[in-house]
Amino acid sequence: MWEIIRKNQRKSLFLLIGMGIVLILLGFVIGSSFDPEAGGFAGIILALVLYFILLIVAFSSGKSIMLRMSNAREVGPDDYPQLYNVVEEMRLAAGMPSMPKVYVIDDSSPNAFAAGMNPNKSVVAVTTGLLNMMTRDELQGVVAHEISHILNRDIRYMTLATVMVGTVAILSQIYLRSMMFGGGRRGGGGSGKNKGNAIMVIVALIFAILAPIAIQLLYFAVSRKREYLADASAARLTRFPEGLASALEKISNSTADLKVADKSMAPMYIANPLKPKGKRMRNLSSTHPPLDERIRILRSMGKNHSYSGYQQAYQAVTKSKQGIVPNSALTTS
């Protein structure tokens, strides 16, 4: 059934393709602004090569970078018996072949994340703030949500997306800076070719400013959908949606910001570690759906803890006909 979920991420895939198109267009426009004839193609190649280099780095050492950035330390069954037990319980419920490594982050803000491209080499990390604040059932809900990210292959998926956002940001920055400091050199001259160039330069400048914003919005849409799905899987694994619901409630009431949080790591956490400043924009520009909405969906699931139960609750709470869970998963569980 996990396999079915993986295969049926059509909507997320479309968003990912959309992000890819933004990246390729940016490469094309920047390249064309230097040389209208052959530059576009070279720009695309440059953008893709940069993307793949960054991707290789992320896939080979993303996990260790993330753990180091958040100052996480590995713990065993003797250090935190309850945490370790809860992780093992969720591993068994999910039928994962091997035990994820358990990490603890010394931070008073309640949060958790999962890492690892491969379900056999995965990591679950929680903050000490979370451990202090949650009951056993609530901790179980949080851990189930993280394990679900691993099972649904969200980490692999989100890495593909995060690196794309990063590549677009780097390309735009380099281009804008080079135009700011080196723009004068190309400014002179009045031949026909240079005139065409000037138009392409303006297009490229506009694109370099807009592309990072566009790709961010697409990225947020992918990330939010993944959060709902991980909540649905968590309810199914624990058969107790109230645990996660009340954990999320506690998280939303806590005021502490995660000190070690970084923008690029946000989608991997259970709740957005960086609290949004304004409320109006939060729906479009957040990696996570609003907590109160996630809580209401979980609480209106009733006795049906399967994917179809979550789907119904989601549609009732958000008043949308949109599907969160792929249809093929609904019929098998």
Partner: peptide, 24 residues
Amino acid sequence: LALQEELTSTENKISFARQNYNDQ
């Protein structure tokens, strides 16, 4: 208390492993 956490957890693990077994 330590034994209690161990036993509680083992019983939970049995239930969760059973849940997965029955699915399979």
